[in-house]
């Protein structure tokens, strides 16, 4: 059984998320404080964690960093809609995804399952990364859509490589910029807009309603679920 640690200081949320997880076939391990969560890690490292960012005894973002050092499985944060800064900080420190309150159980389960799927993904023996209809071969510098090769500029190729390697996980703008343009350009999200626009024109069936490259305004990019 997959064990999922749930950290939230609100008893009602803790109970609710636990119920949702049990319904989805997971074993819920509740913790009401950051201290309790870290103690649980000492006993047994869970397969995944769902963490509320508003905890009384520790900054939620710090807890995310601490948990990330102790586990490789999916880490999902619960946060308020308008807490953009917290979301970015948590994602930057290793959270896999976020769910804003109020959320419903199915949404949470879907996010958790997708994250677990990504975590369990094996890299193909040929070094080729796949995501839905996309295939990228870093060694040969080739990207294929439905088996058809698409010509990309070097920047476009790098952006796609990062996104496909993330396999549907949300990649924050700063991270993409750092890895494609270098550390001195983490603030230049304008660059990303231009390159992603060009990529959508080459890859999307309808560039005005993209399904492959999705953006979370102010936060980052992810590839659409397959």
């Amino acid at each position: 059984m997959t064990r999922v640690l749930v950290v939230d200081d609100e008893a009602a949320i803790l109970r609710l998320v636990s119920a949702v997880l049990e319904r989805g076939g997971f074993t819920a391990v509740p913790a009401a404080t950051a201290r309790a969560a870290l103690a649980e890690f000492e006993r047994a490292v869970p397969d995944a964690a769902i963490v509320d960012l508003g905890l009384p005894d520790m900054d939620g973002v710090e807890l995310v960093a601490a948990l990330r050092q102790r586990m490789s499985g999916p880490l999902i944060v619960l946060t308020a809609r308008d807490a953009t800064g917290d979301k970015i900080a948590a994602l930057d420190l290793g959270a896999d995804d976020y769910v804003t309150k109020p959320f419903d159980g199915d949404e949470l389960l879907a996010r958790l399952r997708a994250a677990l799927r990504r975590a369990g993904r094996a890299i193909a023996a040929d070094g080729v990364l796949r995501h839905g209809p996309l295939e990228i071969d870093p060694a040969r510098h080739e990207l294929r859509l439905d088996g058809r090769q698409v010509t990309l500029t070097p920047r476009e190729f790098l952006v796609m490589e990062v996104l496909i390697a993330a396999g549907g996980r949300l990649v924050i703008h700063a991270d993409l910029l750092r890895r494609v343009w270098g550390p001195s350009h983490v603030g230049d999200s304008d660059y990303l807009r231009v390159v992603v626009r060009a990529l959508r024109l080459k890859l999307e069936a309808d560039p005005s309603a993209p399904t492959l490259i999705r953006n979370e305004p102010g936060i980052g990019y992810r590839l659409g679920e397959v």
């Binding site: 609100e10 009602a12 949320i13 609710l16 998320v17 119920a19 949702v20 319904r23 508003g54 308020a80 308008d82 807490a83 309150k101 109020p102 959320f103 419903d104 159980g105 199915d106």
Partner: peptide
């Protein structure tokens, strides 16, 4: 504001969850 928003969203989340179940 942040505290107020948090306090309102928690019962809403619970409500949504309970209704769904």
């Amino acid at each position: 504001l942040a505290a107020m928003a948090h306090d309102f969203r928690t019962p809403l989340t619970v409500l949504a969850g309970e209704v769904a179940a």
